[in-house]
Write a protein that binds this DNA or RNA. Structure first.
Lengths: 213, 213
DNA sequence: CATCATGGTGTATATGGTACACTACTCGGC
DNA sequence: GCCGAGTAGTGTACCATATACACCATGATG
């Protein structure tokens, strides 16, 4: 019995998953890069990535990357696109299935990783600029018509925190009264009854995301 | 010098491109399937596909499929998603980068291909039902806010033809006056000055798609 | 008790979407 | 040449949604 069941005359491309992990920290949208210590692009900042293991679901590869490179769990994980332009990897024919993740923890940089503001990114290697641009565009596009924004926040949050998160993601200010009206009318959140405390201001109602309905 | 430059301990998955080609014919949204003559799934209808050649751009693989399998040129080609669930191909670890295409020609079935109405699809092989469902959803979602719908039509067309195309894609009837008002106000088309002829009715103005603003 | 920072609230206007029906014209058949 | 079939083309009233905009109340801090 032949070891390889598939009739396939061509050399296979290598397949990697690259991950664009987002968080919002101090009213800024940030993403995670890692400094390469091997060529190609040694010393350059790149998206964390890994080769796909045998019979490994792509999504598993993506969460494995987040776990191994940053010791993080992603709250949200979505496939972005697959990049396969010849020449994108100087080592040869390498496809990259890009995913993007959203993380809500305030984390410290682990190993050679660092969180960069999307407005102040360093020069990257490979075609990771393209991947990042696609990811940011997708994230912004989906923010208003999906529940993706809640993935940046802890279980309970105030409406002001939610608004600041949206503003950080979109990069534009939002009107407070209209924002609250819109969020509440869509019934995407429910009041917990609890109130936040601390700060030189009145306590604010804490809300929780309501997935369905 | 080693033949393989990439340090990569794992067996590589095979990579295919599968194509969902759409057309609108007789007010019906149709897609192209091909009858497999080899196992697995011999005799089953499947999406046309091919393995990715060495250093071949994915988009080239996609248009090659359309050319080789149906002798067609796609007017529009867009990457859909990459499917890699273990077990999706009984032969082993095979990733499929799915594309969708739009074709405007009225064509006859070539070889073992056949155009099926999306409302009356046969049983398919692999995970092609998933791919098709994703493609139809994407197509419908993008119809109203992109210019994707014009790819189904020839250079010049009447507003009624455009409306019927939209209705076929969406699967729902549209109001004639509102449709025309909306299309014209968005300035997505310009009148050519020419009029259609033939048919037991007055001649209709022919329009042309205006890509930019 | 004064200051600071945020919490929380409503109305008026503009914009865009939806529902809805009739006359005019060309072709083809008789 | 007359009639029927089939489509071209057109406007208004209503409703829902998005936008612009400002002030007082409250709790913490020193």
């Amino acid at each position: 019995m032949p070891k390889r069941l598939i009739q396939y005359d061509f050399p296979r491309p290598a397949v990697t998953v690259d991950l664009v992990a987002f968080r919002v920290q101090q009213d800024t949208l940030e993403l995670l890069l890692i400094e390469r210590d091997q060529p190609p692009f040694a010393g350059r900042w790149t998206l964390p990535g890994a080769f796909v293991h045998e019979n490994e679901p792509l999504e598993t590869t993506a969460s494995r990357i987040l776990q191994e490179k940053a010791h993080l769990e992603g709250i949200y994980l979505e496939q972005l696109a697959t990049f396969g332009k010849p020449g994108r990897d100087p080592r040869g024919h390498v496809l990259s299935v890009a995913y993007f993740a959203i993380v809500n923890a305030a984390t410290v940089d682990e190993g050679k990783t660092h969180w960069f503001s999307v407005d102040a990114l360093p020069e990257t290697g490979f075609d990771h600029d393209d991947i990042i641009a696609t990811a940011v565009q997708r994230l912004r596009g989906k923010l208003t018509y999906t529940d993706i924004g809640f993935a940046f926040l802890p279980d309970t949050f105030t409406l002001t925190e939610l608004q600041k998160t949206w503003q950080a993601v979109l990069g534009t200010p939002l009107d407070k009264r209209n924002f609250r009206k819109s969020i509440l009318s869509q019934q995407r959140v429910v009041a917990t009854g609890e109130k936040s405390s601390g700060g030189a201001h009145p306590p604010a109602m804490l809300y929780r995301w309501q997935p369905e309905r």
